[in-house]
Design a binder for these strands. Structure first.
Length: 465
RNA sequence: GGCGGCAUAGCCAAGUGGCUAAGGCAGAGGACUGCAAAUCCUUUAUCCCCGGUUCGAAUCCGGGUGCCGCCUCCA
């Protein structure tokens, strides 16, 4: 039995799917107007761990992820520019090209992090018809009203509006400091369909019963998950920042027309935060430019999987402070794991060790407690009495969830050119003559070129520095 | 102002009433080595503060203090 924290109930509850053996999972995907940053990616790592845990428990997971390629405004108060159009203005290519470019970049990030792709991707622009249909149903049920700039959802008509975030609607009213779109009936009302501005031509706009325009950004997730997962499904995930606005409004759009509970489990990943400095806010955000991409990690010769390991060191519901020092620590741990695995791996079939595997699986089942799961992993390697083949078999089993690529871990030997090879040979020669001063001098020379040496019974090995 | 989260070793981070408070990184000592590296062993915690409940609290309750997130684009 898996126990998962549910934002709706604010408690960790035993998970049971609607349909025996199958899980419907929707995860909010990227807005593809720029590269994802490692904070975004932390959430996708969490969702991957969820999916892998469900699959390891024997569930067949129907995993749907959206790609937002339209309609996401710079401001959530339904004002400002469309982010995609911002990308267009910045790079001078079409919106479609922007979307394709950053979606491809996103998928490359997922691949590098060993994140399993969703079973279904859906692009918002390919579901405009479905979104309009859903808006029409809301209109038919009397939940919408028209303003000059768009069709709005009247949140006061839904008695339990805001239940996910436990919004204090009165308090919001009093504390509202965000400029409200003129004519909105309630501060929480949001646009379902926005009209194109009359004075400019948008790259992305569509005909609708209400006029030419584009969908509000909450609409796509509602419409696409309805289409792929039905009027009720098991789990919907995203970042914590989506609780109060995005998911709250998605719920309103769906439940207003179906009249029944839509999603059974809401799960939210906490933020990756940067150490606070005087200048910068600690949060990483795409819009402020205060962000680190996967690419910049790779440029620093940091293994993307070290970032995956780093994230697994903390529970997904706790904020995690990102530091380069912390990431280096994770990279060191992963390197050590690699060497240990390389040392024990064998083609000889092994038997999975029950005790550590049970501890590991229990940790995963307990609301994805990866820090505890990693402790179980290290305990496998600490047990001296265990047979190497058995240890390896156990680690492979754990890796179905961890996704660290244990099956391909091998001793890392550096690729060396003739020059390095010659220096190594000279040093070996000096050592055999017991000319250690010369040997050490040569080692320094090799080290200075970015390689580490290991003298082993099998000879001198060269590792990347 | 409203809502929510967090405070455990040098760092990251599990642990939500009961043996000697996981695990990782970094550090120290030792074994091994010509010296290293790698590996192995050993070692590192007044659980933010003050009250309270209890036979017993890091864990529950009350009050502080500090930090962070959301309500603004956000994962």
């Amino acid at each position: 039995m898996i126990r998962l924290y549910n934002t709706m109930t604010r408690s960790t509850d035993p998970f049971t799917p609607m349909e025996e053996g199958r899980v419907g999972l929707y995860t909010c995907g990227p807005t593809v107007y720029n590269y994802a940053h490692i904070g975004n990616l932390r959430t996708y790592i969490f969702e991957d761990l969820l999916r892998r845990t469900l699959e390891a428990e024997g569930y067949e997971v129907n995993h749907v992820m959206n790609v937002t390629d339209v309609g996401h405004l710079v401001s959530d108060s339904d004002t400002g520019e469309d982010k995609m159009e911002v990308g267009v203005a910045r790079e001078g290519i079409t919106a479609r090209e922007i979307a394709d470019k950053y979606w491809a970049a996103f998928r490359r990030d997922l691949e590098r992090l060993n994140i399993v792709e969703p079973t279904t991707w859906c692009r918002a622009t390919e579901y405009i018809g479905e979104q309009i249909d859903l808006a029409k149903r809301m209109e038919g049920a009397g939940f919408t009203y028209a303003l000059e700039d768009g069709i709005y959802f009247d949140t006061s008509k839904l008695p339990d509006y805001g239940k996910l975030a436990r919004l204090d609607l009165e308090g919001l009213q009093a504390g509202a400091r965000v400029e409200m779109v003129a004519g909105k009936r309630n501060p929480t009302d949001f646009a379902v369909w926005k009209f194109s501005p009359t004075d400019q031509k948008r790259q992305m706009e569509w005909e609708s019963p209400w006029g030419i325009g584009f969908p509000g950004w909450h609409l796509e997730c509602s419409a696409m998950s309805l289409k792929h997962l039905g009027e009720q499904f098991d789990i919907h995930c995203g970042g914590v920042d989506h609780v109060a606005v995005h998911h709250t409004n998605e719920i309103a759009q769906v439940e207003s027309v179906t009249g029944k509970e839509w999603v059974r489990w809401w799960m939210h990943g906490e933020f990756l935060v940067l150490p606070k400095t005087d200048e910068d806010e600690s949060k990483m955000s795409k819009s402020s430019g205060n962000f680190i991409t996967m690419e910049s990690l790779v440029e620093r010769r940091i293994d993307p999987l070290a970032y995956r390991y780093f994230c697994m060191g903390a529970h997904y519901r706790a904020p995690l402070t990102f530091t380069w020092e912390g990431l280096d620590g994770a990279a060191n741990a992963l390197d050590r794991l690699r060497r240990r695995v390389a040392a024990i791996r064998t083609d000889r079939p092994g038997r999975v060790l029950d005790e550590p595997l049970t501890a590991f699986r229990e940790a995963c089942r307990d609301d994805l407690n990866t820090p505890r799961a990693l402790a179980a992993l290290w305990n496998v390697l600490r047990d001296e009495r265990a047979d190497g083949a058995d240890q390896y078999a156990t680690l492979l089993e754990m890796d179905r969830i961890l996704g660290l690529g244990i099956d391909s871990m091998a001793e890392v030997e550096a690729e060396v050119d003739g020059e390095i090879e010659r220096l190594v040979a000279e040093r070996d020669d000096a050592r055999s003559r017991k000319d250690f001063a010369e040997a050490d001098r040569l080692r320094d020379e090799i080290t200075a070129r970015g390689y580490l040496l290991e003298d082993t019974p099998e000879g001198t090995k060269v590792r990347p520095g």
